[in-house]
Structures are given as structure tokens and as C-alpha cells.
């Protein structure tokens, strides 16, 4: 994969500007603060893509909360090297039983990872599990999972930035943009 030194030049179009993202994150934070008032909330961020979103969102929620991080293996990387099954690469660092859990995702497309994650977390007996995703790409959905908090519904394009990568690159862009086909076809 050939990556330009100027990451921005690999982006065909800015889909969501830094300002648009910040405004939406503030709005989501407000809604979540209202909905969970008086309750014990645990945010679970799914590494690595949701890291910037998690960092911004948690600072927009006005309630006392805990955070935790999880990482789930993705198909393709290790699929044919190990058992060929999805694995938890990093588990929660504390129990979540009887807690209200909010899964924080960067993007939901097929819903396959989220479907697995919810099933896994339900086994840990939380009081409730809800999902907050910055981006939703419904055109790609295979598993219909209710998403309780959605930032933006986006068109069917390959997007990078604000945590989203291609080949582990572009995560540090401050906006969400559509990657030029030349960037992934090269």
C-alpha cells in the first residue's frame, strides 16, 4: 500500500468537517447525559477506530462514568492464521454486572462485529446494553441491530479519518473523508 505523505491529498471529499463532528458529539453527549441521569454508566470503546470519538464523547457527558476498552480481531488479519474465529484481543478490565453499558463505536456497517460484541457482553450480566455510533452505513447492514445513538448516517463510500483507518493509516485526520480509490487500489 502506497501512502502519500500528505494524508489529506488522498481524500477525495470531506464528508464531515471537524466542526460538524464536534457539534454532533456535543449533541450526543447531551442526550446521553439526560437519558442516563441518576444511573451508573460505563462506556465501552471498541479499539482502535472509536478512540477519538470516545475521548470527545466522554468529555461531553456530564454524568459520573467509567470507561473501558475492548479490542476484537477483525476478519482478514488473523483469520486464516489462527482458529478462523473472531477473538477478543483485549477484554474489559473490570466487571460490568448490573451496570448500564454504552458501547461506543466509530462506524457500523455490516453489524457483524457489533453483533458478536453484544452477545459477548450480555454474558457478563450488565443491567443494560446500548449502542452509540458516530457513523452508520445502513446500506451495508447484514445484522439488524438497534443503534440507540447515531451521529451521522453516511453514504456507501469508504471513509477514513477521526479514528477510521485504511491499513492502519489516516486515523489521525481531524475530519471524516472519502478515500480516493487510487489510495486503496494502488
Amino acid at each position: 500500500m502506497k501512502v502519500s505523505q500528505d494524508l489529506v491529498s488522498d481524500v477525495a471529499e470531506v464528508l464531515l468537517s471537524e466542526e460538524q463532528i464536534a457539534a454532533k458529539v456535543a449533541e450526543l453527549g447531551q442526550r446521553i447525559s439526560a437519558d442516563y441521569a441518576g444511573r451508573e454508566l460505563t462506556l465501552v470503546s471498541v479499539l482502535k477506530g472509536s478512540l477519538p470519538f470516545m475521548a470527545d464523547l466522554m468529555r461531553r457527558i456530564t454524568l459520573p462514568l467509567r470507561i473501558d476498552l475492548m479490542e476484537v480481531s477483525s476478519y482478514g488479519g488473523t483469520a486464516t492464521e489462527s482458529s478462523g474465529l473472531v477473538r477478543i484481543l483485549k477484554d474489559l478490565s473490570a466487571p460490568i454486572d448490573d451496570q448500564d453499558v454504552l458501547i461506543v463505536e466509530d462506524i457500523i456497517d455490516t453489524g457483524l462485529t457489533l453483533n458478536y460484541l453484544i452477545r459477548y457482553l450480555k454474558g457478563k450480566n450488565p443491567r443494560s446494553i446500548k449502542v452509540c455510533s458516530l457513523l452508520d452505513k445502513p446500506a451495508r447492514r447484514l445484522v439488524d441491530i438497534p443503534i440507540d445513538y447515531v451521529g451521522f448516517e453516511i453514504p456507501d463510500a469508504f471513509v477514513v479519518g477521526y479514528g477510521l483507518d485504511f491499513g492502519e493509516v489516516y486515523r489521525n485526520l481531524r475530519f471524516v473523508g472519502v478515500l480516493r480509490p487510487e489510495a486503496y487500489e494502488s
Binding site: 476478519y75 483469520a79 478462523g84 474465529l85 473472531v86 457483524l112 462485529t113 453483533n115 458478536y116 445484522v143
Partner: peptide, 9 residues
């Protein structure tokens, strides 16, 4: 089919 297997669907 392999993708579905991977995600245990």
C-alpha cells in the same frame, strides 16, 4: 461463508 464463520453467525 468464511466471514460468517469468523463472526460466528
Amino acid at each position: 461463508g468464511r466471514i460468517l464463520d469468523f463472526y460466528q453467525v
